[in-house]
């Protein structure tokens, strides 16, 4: 069995989830507590990947990343980055595609905390920044863990977007879901099964761990 597609899948999911975590924390905070007009528009844009067919997102990203259009041309000229059919392109697409899976659980976690925790921290002389990192985030651990794992799992399961903008280049863009599709197309079911089994098992173990940890955290919180 060729392990490369699996390795690529988990590398893509890990990098995407880590970058998204950094981006989503301030974004979730802003959505949870920020006072601004046009919140609906921002929320709708972030939530689009939840409802749009991946091929639609993939199609527009393909256009955007293409060197014949402004964004792709700019990235290639200025930063020397070719985004179509490249791993970097996959990472950027995955970030956009999985954004709601990271942002929404964290935002819900932040909003579920009593307002008095934030207020108490402010009256104790602490800034919003300190309050966020020292009071709010430690009390949102289950939400952050859930968000991270959902994002990871969602990226592992990506197919349509990857196929549209990444294609099928071994070692670069050929992730496990694409490999499974290829093997099935070639009627090589045992190979497809091997990839599928690994994805199935790994995903199950990750989710099992998350739910066990979350249940434990929840019990501690409930007993308080």
């Amino acid at each position: 069995m060729d392990w490369q597609p699996l390795w690529l899948t988990f590398r893509l999911a890990t990098i995407t989830s880590l970058i998204l975590l950094v981006l989503a924390l301030p974004l979730a905070y802003w959505l949870a507590f920020g006072k601004f007009k046009g919140r609906g528009i921002v929320e709708a844009i972030i939530g689009m990947p939840l409802v749009l067919p991946p091929s639609v997102i993939g199609f527009y990203l393909l256009l955007a990343f293409s060197p014949s259009y402004f964004f792709g041309a700019y990235m290639e000229k200025i930063l020397g980055l070719r985004l179509v059919f490249s791993f970097t392109g996959l990472v950027i697409a995955s970030i956009l595609y999985s954004l709601p899976f990271m942002v929404y659980p964290i935002r819900a976690g932040l909003q579920s905390l009593p307002a008095s925790l934030r207020e108490a921290s402010y009256t104790l002389g602490k800034s919003e920044w300190t309050t966020f990192f020292k009071v709010l985030l430690p009390n949102c651990k289950p939400a952050i863990l859930t968000a991270f794992v959902l994002t990871f799992a969602h990226t592992v399961g990506e197919f349509g977007v990857v196929l549209m903008i990444g294609g099928n280049i071994p070692g670069v863009t050929k992730v496990a879901s694409v490999a499974i599709y290829n093997e099935v197309e070639a009627l090589n079911y045992p190979a497809a099964n091997q990839y599928a089994m690994v994805l199935f098992a790994v995903t199950f173990v990750i989710l099992l761990m998350v739910y066990s940890v979350n249940n434990r955290l929840l019990r501690v919180r409930q007993s308080s």
Binding site: P114, S116, L117, E119, A120, S121, Y122, T123, L124, G125, K126, S127, K134, V135, P138, N139, R221, S224
Partner: peptide, 27 residues
């Protein structure tokens, strides 16, 4: 609020659940 030098005791106490008693004061 941070510079008004006030103390506020909330109805629900608002103790930080992840910190010990001492850490709550230390914060």
């Amino acid at each position: 609020s941070q510079v008004r030098n006030i103390g506020f005791v909330f109805q629900d106490y608002a103790l930080f659940p992840h910190m010990t008693v001492r850490e709550n004061l230390h914060y």
